Amino acid sequence: MAKDPRVVDDESHDEQGASPKELLFAACRSNNTDLLTEVLSQFPTSDAEDTPTDSKDSEEKKESDATTDEKKESEENKKEEDEDTTPLSRFLNESRDSLGRTALHVAAKYGNPEILDMLLDQEGLEVDPESLMEGDTPLHVAAQYTSEDSEAGGYLIHLLVDAGADPRIKNKGLQKPIDLVDPSCSEIRTYLQEAETEIEQEARQEAAQRAFDADIARQTKHGGDIIIDDLDEAGSGPASDSE
């Protein structure tokens, strides 16, 4: 079976001649922030330089053939798709080691908060990727690290949750991150419970707001006809009475 090109061997490599993927995971394992900075600097943070110089004329010709509504819809959809996608974010999100883990997983596995923090600062980074074998998110891995170092593990968990990691996600063993926290770490468990509750509350509020907005939109759409009908009935009533 052909080897997945996204996957690199989880071994030490000499920096000279090593690929960006190999250097990425070496930095994550060794907490080498200088090496990670070097790797990240190799990738542009936007697709601007990939755009041909004559693309403007081509785009203008395409736009002239489309209607205004179609053009707006296409631009909005493209903006949503490309908003968080850059060569760097694609590299970080798609790179996997031999165990199917991303850079975030490895940084959390080795208890390296500096590396984790640097990675989380990258725009477009997926904070809840699942490892290919266990289905763990980086938050699961950070929770497991509390058994080795409760203080460092707790810090890793805070970094991930603050960056938007979802503590409700279950791995292939149907375990949430809180289930993997060392039993003695009561404060960390409480923190994850509170984070779950907060996310669920926000989700309910957003759902309620969407339902409210949809209801208002329906009323606005049909309100004119209703008001006109009511006015017609109100106007015809007095006239018939006067006759």
Rank of each mutant, 00 (worst) to 15 (best):
K3F: 15
D4N: 15
R6N: 15
V7H: 15
D9P: 09
E11A: 12
A18M: 07
P20Q: 03
C28Q: 09
C28D: 12
S30N: 14
S30C: 03
S30L: 11
S30F: 07
N32M: 08
N32E: 13
N32V: 09
N32C: 10
T33W: 07
T33C: 11
T33E: 14
V39M: 11
L40R: 11
Q42V: 10
F43R: 02
F43T: 00
P44R: 01
D47Q: 07
A48W: 07
P52L: 01
T53V: 10
D57Q: 07
K61A: 14
D65Q: 15
T67R: 13
T68M: 12
T68R: 12
E73H: 13
S74H: 11
E75A: 09
N77D: 15
N77K: 14
K78H: 10
K79S: 11
E80K: 15
E81N: 04
D82Q: 12
D84E: 10
T86H: 04
S89Y: 00
F91G: 08
F91V: 03
E94K: 09
S95L: 03
R96W: 10
D97G: 12
S98K: 12
L99I: 08
T102A: 13
T102P: 09
V106C: 06
V106E: 04
A108D: 09
Y110S: 05
G111V: 10
D117I: 02
L120A: 07
Q122S: 03
G124I: 02
P129G: 03
S131I: 01
S131G: 11
M133K: 11
E134G: 06
G135E: 03
T137R: 00
T137V: 01
P138C: 04
P138T: 06
P138I: 02
A142W: 00
A142L: 02
A143Y: 03
Q144D: 04
Q144R: 05
S147T: 07
E148Q: 09
S150W: 01
A152W: 00
G153K: 02
G154P: 05
H158D: 07
L159A: 08
L160R: 05
V161A: 11
D162H: 09
G164P: 01
G164E: 07
G173M: 07
Q175C: 05
P177E: 01
I178K: 02
D179A: 03
D179L: 01
P183Y: 06
C185N: 06
E187G: 04
Y191Q: 00
E202Q: 14
A203F: 02
R204C: 02
A207K: 03
Q209M: 09
Q209P: 05
D213I: 05
A214R: 08
D215M: 06
I216V: 13
I216P: 01
G224W: 08
G224L: 15
I226L: 14
I226C: 09
I226A: 14
I227G: 05
I228P: 02
D229W: 09
A234W: 13
G235S: 14
S236Y: 11
G237V: 14
P238N: 00
S240E: 10
S240I: 15
D241W: 12
